[in-house]
Design a protein around this nucleic acid. Structure first.
Lengths: 103, 103
DNA sequence: TGATTATATAAGTAAATCCGTATATATTTA
DNA sequence: TAAATATATACGGATTTACTTATATAATCA
């Protein structure tokens, strides 16, 4: 079943706490890498590597804005991913705490 | 976020094509290990080991019936797992093809 | 009871995965 | 143009994972 294999690949990507937290963060709004590094309290290369995987699977988009690269969700055409996202807690409050240097 | 970590653990379990196919099969009905081995075309130990992980996470139940141990879904109290299950294709036709020795 | 069938567990191996350190690339600013 | 900032990539090590083979346990049947 090719459909199941494809779903398994995507679920595997979400089955990592760093990446799943990234997705939860991006539910609120697009974020640049330095925001994500600060929010996740991880290293910049680690964040970049996880973001690359999410992007390779088409789960996020990237947009450069000057020095910064903003990542945003790209799940409109992926209904089961959207369904999962609906069950992720909102991290909006946490996001509002970060100091927004990026700009 | 403990809730996210717990979700990530469960999604990781579903993020494997063997286990996700098992879950899709069990959506139709309870199956014994030998059924699953036949349907997945894998080895018996491999099937048992994957089933053990699903059981440890509480995603399936087991019930012995004589010589056979039947596994069934246990997702009533796990809404996001149920949501994902709803997007898995039905493998009913495939299941109906197996020769039902078990009995 | 001994043989057979169903399932679980143990142990080993190859591959995948996550993360850290180091470095490269791209953009902005002085 | 040089320095600073933001991000990506390369590489290596430790851990995890999936699978195989071999063996153990449990239930049934002759």
């Amino acid at each position: 079943m090719e459909q199941i294999n494809e779903m398994a690949e995507n679920l595997k990507l979400l089955g990592d706490k760093t990446r799943l937290t990234m997705m939860a963060l991006l539910k609120d709004r697009a974020l640049c890498v330095c925001d994500i590094v600060e929010l996740l309290e991880t290293s910049q290369p680690n964040a970049s590597q996880h973001l690359r995987k999410l992007k390779a699977a088409g789960l996020v988009n990237e947009t450069r804005k000057g020095q910064w690269i903003y990542y945003s969700l790209n799940v409109e055409d992926k209904p089961y991913i959207q369904a999962i996202m609906g069950y992720l807690p909102s991290l909006k409050e946490k996001i509002d705490q970060i100091k927004n240097d990026c700009d």
